[in-house]
Amino acid sequence: MLRVHFTAADLARTRVADGPDPLWETVLSVHQLSEQGGGPDPALRAWRTRDCAAGRSALRLLRPVMPPRGYFPDFLTPAASAGGALESGIDAVRSTPRPRLRAELARLAARPAPPAWLRPLADGEPESLRRLGRALRAYHGSVLRPAWPWISARTEQDRLWRAQTQTVAGTDAMLRTFGPALRWLPPVLTVDYPADRDLHLGGRGLLLVPSYFCRRLPVALADSSLPPVLVYPAQAPAGADTAGGAGDTGRTPGSQSLAHLLGHTRAAVLQSLGGPCTTSELARRAGVSASSASEHAAVLRRAGLITSTRLRNRVHHSLTPLGTALLTGGATAAAPGLR
């Protein structure tokens, strides 16, 4: 169990990342490939069907430093890669100070049969660091880049949902949207986690990173002195088309109760409003026709759950505070006017 301790200053500095982090997605997708051999995930299955020698060679090098269970080095997921900055992240990995390399890689070297190249990497040998950088770049280019539209779509839906909740209802309300794996009982966020530890933010705030490949439990950096990060499984709104049309069973919190209240289709339309979008985008997210999305949006607008604004020839929809409260569990009764 991980207990994240907040102060008032931490709540003010807590935010959701601007997008998927390419190095966190690298580590977590390597975990999936190591455990499942490609598994059922459409992104990884699509890569498995291609003949990609560069990706396979990179994967062989990365697997030993990214074991799927237990510890992996923090320097592989630097803050510089946040928001999609792959090259900045790789530069930060290659610039890791030698004492930190030695300390973090020593924990891996204690495992059975560490690879021979781990010692020169721990010593900060320039060619070993360049080799690691090339492997990270090759893996991303061959495995993740073809799937990046799916990764971005899933994480963006989740990011907009959390960010809009935070903007409208505050950080406290946003921290209550995560469901059973993350439980917010102020001033502590309790996280299902493989180790028992406490993380005191101490005024630094927390960066929440939605991840496509984080599938079991949230992940945090092992070194509590580093800027606090919590990577969590991104959720897609009900009915959203993810992973290239493969479908998704993810649901926002309370989706079944919401479906009973509004009806499945209208609930899907409301839940699809993770951020402002046009009628056609709303229809695509909810998996309905544009005319159906427009009709449901009109009902939700009359009920005060969404607002609609015409810009040129497009109508843009967004949640109202009441709509956000209903989705986050802050409303206890049906809004008036729903039929």
Rank of each mutant, 00 (worst) to 15 (best):
L44T: 06
V188C: 10
R251S: 11
G203R: 13
H200Y: 11
Q256K: 08
E87R: 09
V30Q: 02
A92L: 14
A85F: 06
M66P: 00
L144Q: 05
A286C: 14
A17R: 14
H296N: 10
A110T: 06
S308A: 15
A58F: 10
H264C: 10
A92F: 08
D74Y: 02
L108A: 02
M174S: 09
S280N: 11
A80V: 02
P73M: 04
P120Q: 04
N313E: 12
P276N: 07
P237R: 02
D123M: 06
L118K: 04
Q256V: 13
G55C: 15
V93L: 09
S294K: 13
V315W: 03
R69W: 05
D123I: 01
W184Q: 08
P73S: 07
G124L: 00
R204Q: 15
A335K: 04
R137H: 05
A17H: 12
T77N: 00
S318N: 15
T242C: 12
H317D: 14
M66H: 00
T278D: 10
S308W: 02
G179V: 07
L305Y: 06
R131C: 06
L44P: 02
D51V: 05
Y139A: 00
H316R: 13
F6P: 02
T278W: 05
V16D: 02
P68K: 04
A238Q: 07
P67M: 04
T324M: 07
A267H: 08
S225V: 11
T77H: 00
R107Y: 05
P126H: 03
F75N: 00
P20S: 06
T26W: 01
G179L: 10
A333V: 12
P276S: 15
F6H: 09
P40A: 14
L11N: 09
S142K: 01
M174G: 06
S225A: 13
L282D: 01
P22H: 05
P97H: 15
R94G: 10
V27D: 01
T167S: 15
T26Q: 04
L44A: 05
G38A: 04
R285G: 08
A246W: 07
A82C: 09
S255T: 10
A268V: 06
G179P: 10
L201S: 07
T165D: 08
T14F: 04
L226Y: 09
S292R: 15
G275W: 02
A85K: 11
P78N: 08
L33P: 03
A238I: 05
V299P: 03
P253D: 07
P78V: 04
A82G: 12
L129T: 00
V65P: 00
R301W: 03
E25R: 12
G179M: 15
L175N: 01
W148C: 01
R312K: 12
L76A: 05
L300H: 06
A268Q: 11
G244Y: 01
S57H: 07
I306T: 10
A53W: 07
P115R: 03
H260Y: 10
G19R: 04
A17K: 11
R94K: 14
T324H: 06
A173L: 10
H140N: 04
V16G: 01
G247T: 03
P112Q: 11
W161D: 12
A43F: 00
T165G: 13
A43E: 03
F72Y: 15
R130F: 00
P146G: 02
